[in-house]
Design a protein around this nucleic acid. Structure first.
Lengths: 195, 195, 195, 195
DNA sequence: CATGAATGAGACTTCATTCAT
DNA sequence: GATGAATGAAGTCTCATTCAT
């Protein structure tokens, strides 16, 4: 039978991501991926040596498409955009955070994957720190370095996402509005001090 | 009251938690739980109708032992204690956060479990807010409610834990020192304003 | 469903040996073993951790039942019996030699198995040497030790079996008659020399 | 005459033999052959209709290169040479005997192959008998025909090889020295009798 | 000629679950 | 109460084979 060129590796990864986010890690089977992709399981094995390799490819794909990588170009609204993007991903059904936590849990058994996920977060931190430094010549709070602000912002974004994942009625709008308020107030602190 | 079996339900839950945190959800099998507990699989079925019931029991157990439940009693150092306890749990091998994220991911397929986990987080938020209000008569930043401070603090704690889970060399000490610094600075803002 | 006590480990080994000798290593599947045994594949895994372990158990079983082990008790016809037994096993359809060569080939990928098979052969050699020494106070041919006679006899038995496995019309009767003749002539050499 | 392809049929057979001897029959896959040969699986199918055909080709190739075929030309040291060659092949890692036993086991499911292997052995026997007759005008032992001596010698060679395959420390040198001694003694018997 | 992509059957293995004892 | 033996469905993975290009 053997139709050639039915599917590309990237398409397979996309299908796998879908299957993973929808079914969760428990039901993330190669059969389900194959069904989503409309190919046979054997085809998956032609492209990926094992299921783990496929999971790893998903992680790499996410890394490649991560916000940190995308937002390298300078931009005066970059922080606002970052926060807006984070808010969008903050929901009970967040595809991204479901996927990410699923991968996190998988990574407990796969050191390589864990390292790659770690790097993704690290990049996120660094990107935030770098962009923050464009607004804040120095930290608005003594004793809290700009690097730590990057770390804390990332933590807040992920932590809020976690809460949203677990509470159907989590007040995303309200919370993010106040986060922005907080950010502005901190900026003001700096400004006043400068006067 | 419970008639003590050769192995008690609670002991079984404890073993299950261990197995879950150590092996991850993928290898969380009743066989492995049975091995850890030193009983046979049949015995588990004597205590729990299904595997899901066991997982749910784990969640309930965690809820019962959560920080929020424990720290009801008033205490002037309560916030410092909370932060210290969070810092302790913030590590590459954190039993608690591995367990929690594993349950989170499991809950994507189990609404009841998800709700219970959601409540745990909610209680955590509320406990923090309540304790914060003992220090802060009002929010140190206009436009950011005390409730939101509770939410944000929880988010920070969880978000930092996530980063620590993924980065072997995450600077736990440094970060938490600055978090405390931040907390003190915010308190000072309030105090100065009051002058 | 789960009927208890359907089959014993030993019965399983026996079925496995049958399946192995009949189907050859290529078609030696756990499914086929299960079918022969009238159980499900899962049952096999309850008794043996892997397919390899089952193969190993077969080897051990053969070792336990090997001629060398059985013929420990002294017996004045022991050599004749050994030859008769070897002759019986020497045929185009020899269950034993099919099984043994199959295991031999499997052992190329399994050092433990190979060692155990090696020991079986070694025991066979030693048993033969020991029994020979009851007939031959010394070797009938100068320069050929009794140990080597044991080795050579084993080699002949195995080598003839190999030929019989590959030739439908191999003259088993004739060959073994002449082997016995050879043995007697060698004994005579010793006797004459003694005169 | 054969139009040379990028890879010739013979080269493919050689690679297949290597793969077979190295990996054993279990891992003798067309993929592995293709890898050794540096071509793709499809290419193998261009040369051989099925996997079995390839195995058969291997057998034929061995037959063509067998000692019996090569040593047709008369030679007064032919027996010594045969024994020396047999000794060389007698080792724990013997490529030839690993290959041969693997094919033997495969042939249990393939009558055509089995017949061809049978013929190889038969030729070996006959060649030995023929060469023996150049040294021995008649059998040195009454009741043991020259044909049977050929059969027995082949059996010894194969049987010893089997033992060497299974025992890392099998005393090849010692054993073969004594085999030669045996051969000489038998020759002497004849000579003395003739006096 | 040769290949690369795909297939599908079937292998080994795991595991939640059942049930007679 | 507890267990050990068994089940069967489902999962991961392998491999001979096919075929359009």
């Amino acid at each position: 039978m053997a139709k050639p060129n039915v599917i590309s590796k990237d398409a397979l990864i996309k299908c796998a991501k879908e299957s993973l986010a929808n079914n969760g890690i428990n039901k993330f089977t190669l059969k389900s991926v194959a069904e989503v992709a409309g190919v046979t399981q054997g085809t998956i094995y032609y492209h990926f040596r094992t299921k783990e390799q496929l999971l790893l490819a998903i992680v790499q794909d996410i890394s490649k498409n991560s916000w940190a990588d995308i937002s390298q170009k300078s931009n005066q609204y970059i922080i606002s955009e970052a926060i807006a993007s984070a808010k969008n991903r903050c929901s009970y059904d967040s595809y991204f955070h479901k996927l990410f936590s699923t991968l996190l849990v998988s990574s407990f058994n796969n050191e390589e994957m864990r390292m790659q996920l770690g790097e993704i977060v690290l990049n996120e931190n660094n990107a935030l720190t770098q962009n923050l430094s464009k607004f804040w010549p120095k930290s608005p709070i003594d004793g809290v370095s700009l690097e730590t602000w990057g770390v804390l912002l990332t933590a807040i974004v992920d932590g809020l996402a976690l809460q949203a994942l677990l509470q159907k009625d989590f007040p995303v709008e309200k919370t993010y509005k106040e986060v922005e308020q907080l950010f502005n107030s901190l900026s003001n602190l700096l400004y006043e001090e400068n006067q």
